[in-house]
Amino acid sequence: MSDTMHETMNDRTPVIELKHVDKHFGSLHVLKDINLSVQKGEVVVIIGPSGSGKSTLCRTINRLETIDSGEILIEGTKMPQEGKELARLRAQIGMVFQSFNLFAHKTIIDNVILGPMDVLKKSKKEAKEEAMQLLSRVGVDSQANKVPAQLSGGQQQRVAIARALAMHPKAILFDEPTSALDPEMIGEVLDVMTKLAREGMTMLVVTHEMNFARRVASRVIFMDGGSIVEENTPEEFFNHPKSQRAQDFLNSIQAH
């Protein structure tokens, strides 16, 4: 309940922690008693059939969706409900969306420096230098002065990742980052994400890319019908799924 949790924070305090989170959309119970924690440096991948509530779960963490009950903690601090406190905590958690959501009226570089300048109050020069480094890290530095509509979907999504990184976030949430991409562009985005994971970024990824989950995840969470059904290492989950629902799900995607 208190902000003094900071002082008791230690290495084992999760970056993201959800306790007994419940949420309804009208009569639909979309999140049922969700308990989940993500440790520093972990890559947690959430999979599950569509409508299972995985996207909603991801969006509750920076309060793009509200919750009905339960707690969401960022490094032990309870997620505030509004105001400057909420904005401050959001700035520490990056987010990458399915539909990229780059600012359509700004150039690529201006997309990346908006947060650092307006929120972190960095100078334009400093923000720009760092933004260029980030853009070259994700391989789109040559496009810096174009506007989003001139870029391919894969390039836009890599810019969105750079935009999130520019805030030096404690963790990044990926909400189905490759679902809106043409097949040939999925790889370039997953490569960037894999690189990030190897460098120790804390990540929570909602995805349908099973190969990515298998190779990169520290932990896989399987959701269905609004609850977490199974939670395991990728090897265990993909080779020996315990629940019937997870087995059905894995069979159904292998059928394709």
């Binding site: 309060r63 793009l64 509200t66 505030p80 409900q81 509004e82 105001g83 909420l86």
Partner: peptide
């Protein structure tokens, strides 16, 4: 306007 907190 996002869903308001108690103060809002």
């Amino acid at each position: 306007f996002e869903p308001p907190g108690p103060k809002t």
